[in-house]
């Protein structure tokens, strides 16, 4: 991989084709991009993980009559990556309606992949009993940061991972919400950590305001970001909006992921958000998985999105 600084124009060009299988890397807030599968990727990779999102098990409408099938395809594709992911992050909306049978199906399909997997909830997962069924089932392995709050952190290969819940206790007219208890926990969780430690935050709803009229943002996301700004490498991964979007702000890079179930319109491109129907032959081209690689010896992560169309 070259260390040549990238011009703003190049970055914008890269963003234009980010929907293709592109690898993003960044250091100190400057992103670089190249095509997936270039040799540097294979030689320098020391640790990689994957992200899947919005599997919506239980959904069966025109936009996708077989969401278990496309989730299965995503898991199969993860298993075929040249570098087996050290772990997988699921950024929520595992189910469509928080039903036990939906959780069962998701757990069965995802579990068959035998990945080390960490989940954060989407709003569709927390519809019953304040989200307890989801937390007990999918976060049993985690040490909760706050009681019942569905947030936690852990270290892997020198990277600090923070899973946040920004889908409960939402207020009328508002956006996603992290809440006081989690923010207090986050401040304590980050205290004492070296600025040089790479941080990966994963949550369902974007922490940055993508499009407020559709609620695509987090009310108090800025308060979380204020705690993260001193770190040299911060990567924020989310789902919820079912499409790849990226933004870099200082040392913080935001990446929104595709769904494994159905696409949603681009912000403002339709009267409302929600499942978007595409031709059956094109569906897998708008669903996808994400691979993230931590490069040995540098505070740079590479983010590669691939569709289920292969």
């Amino acid at each position: 991989m070259t260390n040549r600084p990238t011009s703003r124009r190049t970055v914008l060009e890269c963003m234009a084709w980010a929907g293709a299988a592109a690898v993003w890397s960044f250091s100190g807030g400057v992103p670089r991009a190249r095509l997936l599968g270039s040799p540097a990727h294979a030689e320098e990779a020391s640790f990689s993980f994957a992200q899947i999102s919005d599997s919506h098990i239980g959904f069966a409408k025109d936009a996708n009559m077989d969401v278990p099938g496309t989730l299965q395809a995503a898991i199969t594709q993860l298993g075929q990556l040249p570098h087996h992911p050290s772990m997988v992050l699921h950024t929520g909306d595992v189910s469509h309606l928080s039903k036990p049978a939906q959780f069962d199906t998701a757990a069965q399909i995802i579990g068959a992949g035998k990945f080390d997997i960490h989940y954060v909830p989407g709003e569709h997962d927390m519809l019953e009993d304040n989200g307890r069924p989801f937390i007990e089932r999918f976060q049993a392995r985690e040490k909760p940061g706050v009681a019942g709050g569905a947030c936690y952190s852990f270290d892997q290969n020198g990277v600090h991972f923070i899973g946040l819940n920004n889908v409960t206790d939402l207020k009328a007219g508002g956006l996603g919400m992290i809440g006081e208890a989690q923010l207090k926990w986050l401040a304590g969780d980050l205290a004492g950590r070296a600025d040089s430690q790479p941080i990966v935050v994963f949550a369902h709803i974007p922490l940055w305001t993508v499009y407020a009229p559709w609620g695509w943002g987090t009310e108090d996301g800025e308060r979380a970001l204020a705690l993260l700004r001193r770190f040299g490498s911060v990567t924020v991964l989310n789902g919820h909006i079912h499409q790849v979007l990226q933004k870099v702000e200082g040392n913080v890079a935001f990446y929104s992921a595709r769904s494994t179930a159905f696409p949603q319109p681009a912000p403002g491109a339709a009267p409302s958000p929600g499942p978007m129907k595409v031709d059956a032959g094109k569906l897998r081209g708008v669903l996808g998985i994400r691979e993230v690689t931590v490069i040995a010896g540098q505070a740079a992560l590479a983010v590669a999105d691939a569709t289920l169309a292969g």
């Binding site: 569709h124 939402l170 407020a212």
Partner: peptide, 12 residues
Amino acid sequence: YGYFCTLHPHMQ
């Protein structure tokens, strides 16, 4: 009686 959608709180 004001109300909203708990999944999509921009709906009021």
